[in-house]
Design a protein around this nucleic acid. Structure first.
Lengths: 196, 196
DNA sequence: CGATTTTTTGAATCATATCAACGTACGTGG
DNA sequence: CCACGTACGTTGATATGATTCAAAAAATCG
């Protein structure tokens, strides 16, 4: 169960993990299962644990005043999920995180962070992830500021092909910040149409 | 000169800085001055140093195929500037960073990072900044996905009032991903108009 | 002052949203 | 196995928000 996590950590740093450290990680990260549709985190709650997805897929969304669900994150196996803002600042979250498929997720509770921080390979991974995360958000932002919907969809297909196959059209549309109708039309044009 | 930087670091961590560590920081961070309009980083170059802005203001932008400058970042005193993606991955940057006012900036070259990483207060700050950074990008992204231009401008005024005063309208418009004309009209409505 | 930068305004146009309807697939209970 | 409900996707007509282009007004700078 923890194998994937261990090799994920190893893959994101240079320092190897000792046997003892692996034991600590196995002890601290605990498995929980969710069925499709269940909420991992509900708006207004403080996010007390981050989760490493072993199997499954989740979506993270905020609900606006009109009741529309705006999807701002999609995560699948081998990714971390959770609201980092809420987790680190211990503030109520503005997001919901919901299992889109049945999931198996390894959670780290915030109370155990101190123990993990003594493991060099783990802090290396965390730094790396923070970096990647912030770089990825920046790219997405640039895509939103400078590209139109169809270009943004192309970017998405290029950068996240795994996600494209995993979620239905209307979810991807929301993730891209457009309506399902618009995405449907963009898709049609892409297949039948000449080069831009 | 380095005073601001020192207290910035202290303010973003819990571990205090020793005299010796302060000496190292002063040695490693070197001052450079830029006049309004000069480029700190040019598209295609690798970003070899991150800068702590002691005085002044800069804008970070990407140029698209039509030649439009899309501003994706604005920074002023007491912020770090630089392309973190390019810096950490050592890839050519897709951004330009330009002094908007005359600037005084303290640069850390990448070669000196190892020495800095032995300073606990510094790594604490770095972790904190990465977190903040990635949280802020996420918020901006949500704003783009779910809000219209006028709401986005309101968000901006609330969250970054310092920037609002510091840059002209057309720069802020680009930062928000809209045209200067649209922002001008939004502004007019806000002053003359009834509550939403 | 003249020159440049910044902001405003109007009209035409374009991209995307919205609303409403229909098509299709899938799975579950009868 | 069929019928029905539910989730997903497509299409068309219309509405709306934002861009574009052109021009001029206002502010700022040397």
């Amino acid at each position: 169960m923890h194998k994937k996590l261990i090799s994920f950590i190893q893959g994101h740093g240079t320092t190897p993990l000792s046997e003892q450290e692996i034991a600590v990680i196995i002890e601290i990260f605990t498995l929980r299962k969710f069925r499709k549709g269940q909420l991992l985190l509900r708006e207004g709650e403080v996010c007390k644990a981050l989760g490493f997805i072993v199997k499954g897929a989740v979506r993270q969304f905020a609900v606006d005043d009109k009741g529309t669900e705006n999807i701002i994150g999609l995560q699948i196996e081998n990714w971390f999920t959770g609201d980092r803002d809420s987790y680190f600042r211990e503030q109520p979250s503005i997001y919901n995180i919901q299992a889109w498929e049945n999931c198996e997720i390894l959670f780290v509770h915030k109370d155990d962070l101190n123990r993990l921080n003594t493991i060099t390979a783990f802090t290396e991974m965390r730094t790396k992830l923070d970096e990647n995360n912030s770089i990825a958000s920046q790219k997405r932002l640039l895509s939103h500021i400078s590209h139109s919907a169809d270009k943004r969809y192309e970017d998405f297909l290029q950068n996240q092909p795994q996600l494209a196959q995993r979620f239905p059209l209307h979810v991807i549309a929301s993730f891209l910040g457009i309506t399902k109708e618009t995405l449907s039309r963009i898709r049609r044009q892409k297949t039948g149409a000449k080069r831009r």
